[in-house]
Simulated assay, not measured.
Amino acid sequence: MANNAGYDVVVDVDDDDGDLGHTDLADLEFHQSNYNADQASGKIPSNQNRGFFNSGSGSGTARSEPTGKRYLWSLDFYAQFFDVDTNEVMKRCWAALWPKAMFLDVLEDRPDLYGPFWITTTVVLILFLTSTLSHYFARMKDEPYSYDFGLLSGAAGLMYGYTAFIPVALWGVLKWYGSESAKLLECLCLYGYANLIWVPVAIASASPITILNWVFVGIGFGVSALFLLRNLYPVVSATDAKTAKILLIVVVVLHAALALTVKILFFQHGSPVKKT
């Protein structure tokens, strides 16, 4: 009977005896089964198509999520950190500039590296362009101007280094002191979106008016520092009070050093550093 695929076996049992052991083999009948048709139409899910992510969904439709492991040396491992759309990135950018809610709540446990990478890259390019204009306006009228492409490498080293190493170091210190809520990707995302304020600051600082440049840099420092402190405080406060206070002070000091470096290196007219 096992070779008759696609058929159901119907057994007629004698009502009087009620004993399957005395059933007449002549009463066995074969009826056409709809099992194969139902399986092809998706009404009955096939066990071969079931994976870790789609088993037990009950909808009969297979999902396309990968079931394999993501290894550190594979592109799939890094692609998951860039899985955001434009609307989501714009929402996070607006939350960084106008922080009505906690930024970590806006992330919804889905931090990304796409926004931080392109924001930092944009800051690097804007710093180079605006500092070039600033130097051009500050030169003597009778002096020929020559472009300094070392500003581009300096901006890249400063912004990429600060955005990458400071969050990693902060996360490592928090883990050392036993903070369970500290997450590396969230720290990187937080510092990356905090760089967004430097785009309008760098554009405004192309002005040859020195006092305005200091005001714009001060505003950029204040907005970004408050953004960092507001979102880092719940994570840092998981440590003891003294350690949390020291860490917050270090965060502010390092951020102030970044703002001062941006002003001195890229908008040099009226600053302590002069080109020889």
Rank of each mutant, 00 (worst) to 15 (best):
L248S: 09
P200L: 10
N34I: 07
A164T: 11
P66M: 06
E108Y: 06
G68M: 03
T132M: 06
L190I: 07
S41N: 12
S271K: 01
S55I: 10
D85Y: 06
E180Y: 06
A206W: 01
V106T: 10
W171S: 05
R139T: 04
M159D: 02
Y162Q: 14
V223N: 01
K275F: 07
L158E: 05
I264H: 07
A95R: 03
H255R: 11
T239A: 13
F128E: 03
P167T: 09
L212E: 10
R63D: 09
F165A: 11
L72K: 08
V236N: 06
P111T: 03
L133M: 05
V84Y: 00
S207D: 14
V253G: 01
L258G: 05
S134E: 13
A257D: 14
P144R: 06
L152Y: 04
Q80H: 06
D148N: 15
F30G: 02
Y145R: 05
L229R: 08
L20R: 07
G115R: 08
V199I: 15
S179Q: 07
L20P: 07
E88D: 11
T276H: 09
F30N: 15
W98Y: 15
N231M: 03
L129S: 12
A182Q: 03
W98A: 15
A256S: 14
I246C: 11
S181V: 09
N3T: 12
Y145V: 12
V262A: 01
V13C: 00
L125S: 00
L185G: 08
K183D: 14
V84W: 02
A194G: 05
V84L: 01
P99L: 00
I249L: 11
K242E: 15
V123L: 02
S74G: 08
S181L: 05
D142H: 09
P208N: 08
G154Y: 01
Y162G: 11
W94P: 00
A169W: 08
S59Q: 03
R50N: 06
G157H: 05
A225M: 11
V168S: 13
L174I: 05
I203G: 01
P234E: 13
L258S: 02
L97R: 04
S146I: 13
G18M: 09
N3F: 07
R139F: 05
V9A: 15
S153H: 07
Q80A: 13
V168W: 12
Q80K: 13
V84C: 03
V252P: 02
Y193T: 09
F52V: 09
A40Q: 14
D27I: 00
A244V: 14
L75S: 12
S207H: 01
P144G: 03
K43Y: 12
F266G: 00
V168Q: 04
G150K: 14
Y136G: 05
L188A: 08
T61V: 15
R70T: 11
D8S: 08
P116S: 08
V215D: 00
L151I: 09
I219W: 05
G115N: 07
D15T: 07
L151Q: 08
G172Y: 02
E65C: 02
D85A: 07
A79I: 07
T130R: 01
V250K: 05
S41T: 09
S41V: 05
M90G: 06
